[in-house]
Design a protein around this nucleic acid. Structure first.
Lengths: 259, 259
DNA sequence: AAGTGGTCTAGACCACTAT
DNA sequence: TAGTGGTCTAGACCACTTT
């Protein structure tokens, strides 16, 4: 085991690896050190990490500090703990993978390349499906927004959203930042939104959708449906993103992330 | 603010809400209480939670305990902290959503309904693309596995996997649990797998794929590509799941989870 | 019985923000 | 300057597993 990247403590002993002069907290240093060792194969999947008391002695830190390091590794899916037995290195598995919407979101954050065009904004009477989703009576007045997301001039995402029409709800003003979609991604300040459900589906573009997205019908696409709830658990917004499959894919990493 | 669901402490005062007789740890009780209050609208999105010292006094616990509660809420995406300023309730946003492979995995766990059929298992010479992915020379011998996943008799997922052919690698035996796919999902014991990358894409079924999946060509599907690495950072397995779009969708929740 | 992780205490000092 | 969160200590007791 090499001690590269880690300063040796001031001459007292050579087992204290944590650099107390660093601005990086001790628990992060210990976490990263363990992760490096796991990545190097010092501790193989399935094998036991040194006990917390051993790590405590090695790094000359308090129990809580070493526990925070372990907690970080647990959160990152790198190890699991078994009470009374030890801390064990997990082998990377498909089941632990997570596909984050952050990459999708990053498309919208690039204000240089990405522009949003409002296609339609009107009120209409809710049809059967929309009424059902928003938990209102069929025929009740709602707001429809249709937007097109362009990346370097090319349309890549189509967004359709239905909003409860109720002047008393201040959220609508936020949602109506029609050229940014800001409200859906980065809600700041006081909002009335409590909870949201999202569904990710595979779909095939209809002729109409393909036309708007400047591509061919029958091409693959993602459908991201979203439903946001009020604090009284009533739906306030229902919509979907339709994303050209050739312009988006989700990535996930399992195991120790690449050095 | 009501105190329902929470026992009052033994007569000393009515502000200590944590039940010390419960088997549920204090930090989880405090976390859940705060989450309930957020769900009720006591603390609205954008507003500040009581300070840690206030919570410490209210619940008669030590600083570390109340910090663990806050840490839980941070991990769950419910609040954010700003040093020197306070802890603030986050409004649920699309960017914080995560689609987990656990649901996908659960298909395989149902051993009653789900069966796996081996379609093909052979060695062959790597073509250009496969060689490139596995970082080997074109024409080198590799193992191909093709499997079909059936749910209540219906084929819903097609799996194709290429493995490095190297008798010295013990992992192959694990991967070759051909009728369970166990190795990909729940690696136990010592394995040589260090890290995996996954990609999720939308696709349209080819006639051949549709035939195997007992559905029509041009139907939507998910493609989940996976690439696993050895401890010396060389790829050891590359493959993909092709999942009928009508049989799978990913779900995510943002904000306080439903009570 | 010994060792392991899980929870918790009652403080300390620091970095940062608000006023 | 006062209040906030961030880190850390040096123990304690408990639940659980292993031997």
């Amino acid at each position: 085991m090499t001690l590269s990247r880690s300063k040796i403590r001031t001459g007292l002993d050579n087992s204290g690896i944590v650099d107390r002069d660093s601005h990086e907290p001790a628990y992060i240093q210990i976490c990263n050190l363990l992760k490096e060792e796991i990545a190097k194969g010092v501790y193989l999947p399935g094998s036991r990490l040194p006990s917390e008391s051993a790590l405590r002695d090695r790094h000359k830190v308090s129990p809580m500090t070493v526990r925070r390091s372990i907690k970080m590794l647990i959160d990152q899916g790198v190890v699991t703990t078994i009470q009374g037995s030890g801390t064990f290195v997990k082998a990377p598995d498909l089941g632990g993978a997570n596909f984050s919407m952050k990459e999708f979101y990053s498309i919208f954050q690039d204000h240089e390349k990405t522009k949003i065009r409002l296609l339609e904004a009107k009120t209409l009477k809710a049809d059967r499906e929309t009424a059902s989703r928003l938990c209102i009576e069929e025929g009740k007045r709602i707001i429809l927004l249709k937007r097109l997301v362009l990346k370097e001039g090319d349309p890549i995402i189509l967004h359709k959203e239905f909003l409860i029409y109720d002047p008393a709800r201040p959220i609508i003003e936020t949602e109506l930042e029609v050229t940014t979609l800001y409200g859906l991604f980065e809600r700041t300040g006081q909002t009335a939104v409590k909870r949201g459900d999202l569904w990710l589906e595979a779909m095939v573009l209809s002729p109409e959708e393909a036309r708007l997205l400047n591509t061919m019908p029958l091409k693959p696409a993602f459908r991201i449906e979203h439903l946001f709830y009020d604090f009284d658990e009533t739906p306030m917004s229902w919509g979907q993103f339709i994303c050209r499959g050739d312009q988006l894919r989700f990535k996930a990493v399992v195991g120790v992330s690449p050095a």
